[in-house]
Design a protein around this nucleic acid. Structure first.
Lengths: 207, 207
DNA sequence: CGTTTATGGTAATGGTCGTTACCAGTCAAG
DNA sequence: CTTGACTGGTAACGACCATTACCATAAACG
């Protein structure tokens, strides 16, 4: 079958992608050399150039596939059928887990740095990740508003406030390498605190 | 006097620093060449090596001095003598202005990328900037708690929530180059909204 | 004025890196 | 078995770059 060759080829491709992702996320785009990737993945540089064309092609493939794998599960959550507090808590925990995962920290770092070099990639990263999360959360808030549970005039802005509150300085410190990702315990506390403030803040009068 | 030489030298030094900052913030550390800096600043590479030793020295000087200039005014604000809403609003506006300024966006970008290469620099950036801001705000909240205006158990965490709320997805979008910094109008709205939620959220029961 | 010191410009040195070429081995397909 | 594609390894080519050297000029100081 052709499947055998295809399978082997895909295995190689995945190994290359994974090794390259590690090095890129660790060192940044400019500081990463093809040799360093091959050193980690084994094989020869020809593999990379046959499969991805050049360094940019390899990098684009990484960002696209990693973002897909990591960000998709962020959105398809069970959000209906619970009250707002439970929904927000679940939302906060999931996004906290995602944002703090080493891979997403890596992608975040590189997206920030290479914003000028790869504007399209960065745009799609944002839209599939933080952007989509905020839009989804805004829908939840909108529904709550229609049920009269909260008062709000701009649900998308509110959603932004909420995710900002959960990201917090914690995310910044982790991104800067100043502290390790929070334990489950810490994450739960931080989310609980954010949910509490947000719920109270939103239930009352909007000036 | 020696002042003449010193003055001239300092002028040269500042010109180099400014040009280098522009290029570094635009392109990142690894992708910035000494030639590119000289092209923008004029003169010769000897200037840089005489003044800063090497590329790392130049970069360190930039981060140190830019951070100092930009972050110091963030802390010494008139915060007493007003009620909490006014204080928070002032705080939010000032930190929003600072975080969204092109220079600080540049520093932020490069701090995120070069966290591995320059851990000490990144640490001092955080402590002098976001860290100190949060600590200062926590003191304000602590005072408000003692006056009985708010209920809280961990003021530093609350401070983090507040700055996170003002930073928000807005900051992320600007850092990623997906939108320009907000106008004064937008900034004011965002801060007002965050203050409102935060105040209401914090005034009521902490479960 | 004479000496030191910084400056501008250009080129050399040594190294790294992206990319391509070459060669020898492997393995699936007809 | 033979063909053709893919692989591993090493080396080559060009380009770029950090750093140093060299030289000629101009400013600053005694």
């Amino acid at each position: 079958m052709a499947a055998a060759r295809t399978t082997r080829r895909n295995g190689r491709r995945d190994a290359l992608l994974q090794a390259a992702a590690e090095v890129f996320f660790e060192q940044g785009y400019a500081a990463t050399s093809i040799d360093a990737i091959i050193e980690r993945a084994g094989g020869s540089k020809r593999n990379i150039y046959n499969e991805f064309g050049n360094k940019e092609g390899l990098f684009s493939a990484i960002v696209r596939e990693s973002a897909d794998n990591l960000l998709s599960p962020l959105v398809i959550e069970e959000i209906e059928g619970h009250d707002l507090r439970a929904t927000l808590t679940a939302f906060g925990r999931h996004s906290m887990d995602a944002y703090m995962s080493p891979t997403l920290i890596g992608i975040y770092r590189i997206a920030v740095t290479e914003a000028n070099r790869f504007p399209d990639l960065v745009k799609s990263f944002y839209e599939q990740g933080p952007g989509r999360t905020a839009v989804r959360l805004a829908e939840v808030l909108e529904a709550a508003r229609e049920r009269g549970e909260i008062q709000a005039d701009d649900c998308l802005r509110l959603a932004g406030h909420f995710v900002g509150m959960t990201r917090d300085n914690l995310h910044l410190q982790v991104v800067l390498g100043l502290r390790p990702p929070p334990s489950d315990e810490e994450a739960r506390e931080a989310v609980a605190s954010a949910v509490e403030i947000f719920l109270n803040g939103v239930r009352r009068s909007r000036k």
